[in-house]
Write a protein that binds this DNA or RNA. Structure first.
Lengths: 143, 143
DNA sequence: ATGCTTTTGAAATTCATTTTCATTTACTAC
DNA sequence: GTAGTAAATGAAAATGAATTTCAAAAGCAT
């Protein structure tokens, strides 16, 4: 699975005429090893701990490339940082965001996905991506 | 309707022990006269044109208050600015965002709203607000 | 290897937003 | 009304995420 993603990114890079660099390989490896919703700063710190030479501008630039390639997706929660999550082909999940403890619960609902398609159809709209975030208090914080 | 909103904000302010100021009245008036999704900077410019004395920090502070009071809602689109939209009680709309021309189409779908409630219930989650944005190309841009 | 172009790292810059702080203003008690 | 206080304001400075700049380094075609 991870290998496939690397291949997918390499194809994208090749198609775009991008060069293959050590830095991008490393950042991709580390990104793929992370869990959901990592911020650029967080990823940069991880990268730096094993590869002190890599600068944060490179991490920013590379994550944008990942998003462009379809490997990652930008998520704007409400903490002032851009986060990136993994894109799994054919799967889309949304988020319950707890404003009490900042926990993020993922969920998937096919019916909602289908309703969105209906709505888009009604408006002649072609869907590229979407984002559903529900804000509130998780079970632990609501008490 | 506008009067009710002003009253609602005043109640909120009173309950919070906030003082009533000329600046907040003016900013509220102007905010209520705007259309959807105004950025802080845009609102500040509007405010400044009729009231040059009002500073932008005040506009920032006041819009946060509006959001806290339930009058407005923060919307993060992808242009690096925080935008605010009007909250209409008992109504919630979501957005189709055209990445071609930046048009924003609003829609409402009760079924989706209800499904969200089901999902929250299943996770023991208490919903405060939510946000659904569908990105893609509008009818005009997809051709 | 050579030459050309992309990529990189470090530092500087940008830009939205927040904070600071001295001053002004609103409200409360007299 | 006036005095006392705490909150709100405006201007400027500070912050912090993200982007840009630019010289040096690295990738790639020949």
């Amino acid at each position: 699975m991870i290998l496939e993603k690397k291949k997918a990114f390499n194809s994208f890079a090749a198609a775009k005429g991008l060069r293959s660099t050590r830095q991008r390989d490393i950042i991709l490896d580390i990104f793929l090893s992370t869990h959901q919703h990592i911020s650029v700063e967080e990823l940069y710190l991880k990268v730096k701990s094993s590869n002190p030479g890599i600068g944060q501008a490179t991490v920013y630039r590379t994550l944008k490339l990942f998003a462009e390639s379809g490997l990652a997706r930008e998520v704007l929660l409400h903490d002032g940082q851009t986060r990136y999550e993994h894109v799994v082909v054919g799967e889309h999940h949304d988020h319950l965001v707890c404003t009490g403890c900042n926990a993020i619960i993922e969920f998937e609902d096919e019916t909602i996905e289908n309703l969105q398609k209906d709505i888009a159809l009604r408006h002649g709209f072609f869907i590229r991506s979407h984002k559903l975030e529900i804000y509130g208090l998780c079970a632990a914080c609501r008490t």
